[in-house]
Nucleic acid binder design. Structure first.
Lengths: 245, 245
DNA sequence: TGAATAAGTTTCACTATTTGAAATTTTTCT
DNA sequence: AGAAAAATTTCAAATAGTGAAACTTATTCA
């Protein structure tokens, strides 16, 4: 290496690049071993990167901090105050999703500390018919917009259990509207449940959906009534404090 | 500072933070002076950060690399092949904008090398009626969606020259539709012109708009016909190669 | 166009930070 | 509770980082 270079910065970048490739998080020992650095050197650089807010450290695991900045969604810190307590109370990850380009885009994530990988759903788009959040949005959106979306959405199954038939989708959407929420029971991913309620603006137009994701153990069927109730309160708070422009 | 820390990483971070605050770009001398580092040290760290792709260096100016990753827009590299030649030919910055949440969001930027600050438009949302790109989207979008948007858009003037009256907006949209493009002539920012054409999918539904931004000198009125022609070719290429899912 | 100035880059001796083995502490697992 | 694994601390040695001075390149101005 020549004299115009900083090997310290290179090592730090190698560490960041390794951790970026491992969404599940890495231990210090694993990073040192795979990046081929001394573990003390690795320890020191990791400490510094955490202090500089480039990495997150949670229980002996290191993660890259998500850099998605939703410039056009000025709702971050207020939403956090409303949603984060639910995350802690129910030990579930929560998401805010909004319709965008005939899909539902996850615009904000509140990952439970034991499910930090859920942060990587941020920015991801999904067809409306493939998840609870999407189906919830579909059920509660403006009728004209819904018709347009249904006509143009590529109704593509993601798992074997997904609804693919138009008639059963319509029936399902009717049920969702009546009960006030949508529920995925292992339809998207085995062992996982997702539950979502709608979020409206002051003019009662759908803005998005608020969903939670957990396992069968943490999102038990017998808890659904209470959870739905708390999510609906949170949704109303979002309407009252945020979506009234 | 204690033994568990890297002062090199801290200095690099101070440099990045300073440059991040200066969207117009900074020189080496300016960074060294303001971050209070020796200019040789600063020089060395800047070289390394550029090599590691954390910073961009263009003609003695350093810029932070934009980190916005449009995960839900798999059009990046192909769009670049279509649009970048126009940027170079006309010496204008180009943008792709898409409707999102009743606004037009800039989803992709191709900044001309002398207008790198235009990269910071990425992710920004604007009301439909306030720019050529927004008005173009409004003019060409699905009639039902347009009515909905017009009903709910907060028609708020951004500059004195912006159209605020509903009737003159409707008249203006009709003109845009007839001539096939929208033009801002110093309406958003003095000395700047913006010109936009629609982008459709294969089913002739509006997906977004393709716009270019320049000064009165680089976007001269007598060049508009040719520029519009080239933009429409690019738009058709986008439709044919990208927006056909 | 050429001189003056400003900015950027290179050199090299010095030193402060980085390094890493060994020791110690903490956490996890059985 | 104890063994094993992982993380953190210590401390002497090594070296990458440092910065003044010199040199080169780019820009500005007359």
């Amino acid at each position: 290496m020549n004299d115009n270079f900083s090997t310290t910065l290179v090592k730090a970048q190698q560490i960041k690049d390794y951790i970026k490739k491992h969404e599940h998080g890495c231990t210090l020992t694993e990073v040192a071993k795979n990046v081929k650095l001394n573990k003390t050197t690795t320890y020191r650089l990791l400490q510094t990167l955490v202090t500089l807010n480039d990495l997150i450290k949670v229980e002996r695991c290191y993660y890259v901090k998500q850099q998605f900045t939703a410039n056009y969604l000025p709702v971050g810190w207020l939403t956090s105050r409303i949603v984060q307590p639910l995350v802690n109370k129910y030990e579930l990850s929560a998401f805010l999703g909004m319709p965008f380009n005939h899909q539902l885009v996850i615009t904000q994530v509140f990952a439970f500390k034991k499910r930090l990988i859920d942060f990587y759903q941020l920015g991801k788009a999904q067809a409306f018919n493939t998840s609870a959040m999407g189906k919830c949005a579909l059920a509660f959106m403006n009728q004209a917009v819904q018709s347009d979306v249904l006509m143009r959405t590529n109704l593509q199954a993601q798992t074997k259990n997904s609804l693919t038939d138009q008639n059963s989708l319509a029936y399902s959407l009717q049920n969702i509207k009546e009960q006030g929420y949508a529920l995925d029971d292992e339809e998207v991913q085995l062992e996982n449940r997702c539950l979502a309620v709608p979020v409206f603006d002051k003019k009662e137009q759908l803005v998005g959906t608020l969903g939670v994701l957990g396992t069968k153990a943490t999102l038990q069927r017998r808890k659904i009534t209470k959870l739905v109730h708390d999510l609906q309160i949170a949704s109303n708070q979002l309407t009252g404090q945020i979506f009234n422009n």
